[in-house]
Simulated scan of single mutants.
Amino acid sequence: MTIKMAVSSGVLSLALGGCGTAATVLQDDAEAAQDLRRQKTYCQSIPRVYSGLTYDFCVLNAPPDPTGFLVPLILVDLALSGALDTVVLPYTIYRQGVDGNLSIYWRPSRG
């Protein structure tokens, strides 16, 4: 394996591991919300339709990453999430209708 192939596969693995679509569609709601809280995002909730793109924008809308490593990965992930969000669109439209937005911060019910 050449160095170029190794670097490319490493970047792809990192991008897919942090993929916004995988984080919001394949994980349960609590895990996705916890990931965004860990990033200290200012988002309160995200729609399920195109949730991967929204997830990435929420990560970008957080306090700056001191390492400077996160922004390039998020920019790569925006393209991947856009494509994957389009593929899972029928499922996310259904989930949006049934479950509504994915809440980042738990709010107690008024009752």
Rank of each mutant, 00 (worst) to 15 (best):
T2P: 11
I3C: 13
K4M: 11
M5D: 15
A6F: 09
A6L: 09
A6N: 10
S8L: 14
S9D: 12
G10Q: 04
L12P: 07
L14I: 13
A15P: 06
L16F: 05
G18Y: 05
C19Y: 03
C19Q: 11
G20W: 01
G20A: 02
A22W: 03
A22I: 15
A23N: 12
T24Y: 03
Q27V: 10
Q27W: 03
D28C: 05
D28A: 09
D28N: 08
D29M: 04
A30P: 09
A30Q: 05
E31D: 12
A32F: 03
A33V: 01
A33D: 05
Q34A: 13
D35H: 13
L36D: 07
L36N: 08
R37P: 00
R37Y: 06
Q39N: 11
Q39P: 02
Q39S: 10
T41M: 03
Y42V: 07
Y42I: 01
C43F: 14
C43H: 11
S45T: 02
S45N: 11
I46M: 06
P47T: 01
P47E: 04
P47R: 14
R48G: 06
V49G: 00
V49C: 03
Y50P: 06
G52M: 00
T54A: 13
T54D: 09
F57G: 04
F57S: 01
F57Q: 11
C58W: 01
C58D: 06
C58Y: 04
L60F: 03
L60G: 07
P63H: 10
P64N: 10
P66F: 13
P66G: 05
P66V: 04
P66M: 05
T67D: 06
T67G: 01
F69G: 02
L70K: 12
V71L: 08
P72E: 00
L73T: 06
I74H: 04
L75G: 11
D77S: 08
D77W: 04
D77I: 14
A79D: 09
A79S: 12
A79N: 01
L80G: 08
D85H: 06
T86A: 15
V87S: 03
V87C: 03
V88M: 02
L89K: 12
L89G: 02
P90V: 10
Y91I: 15
Y94P: 00
Y94N: 01
Y94M: 15
Q96E: 11
D99W: 13
D99E: 13
D99Y: 12
S103R: 12
I104R: 11
Y105N: 14
R107E: 14
R107P: 04
S109K: 12
R110T: 15
R110W: 14
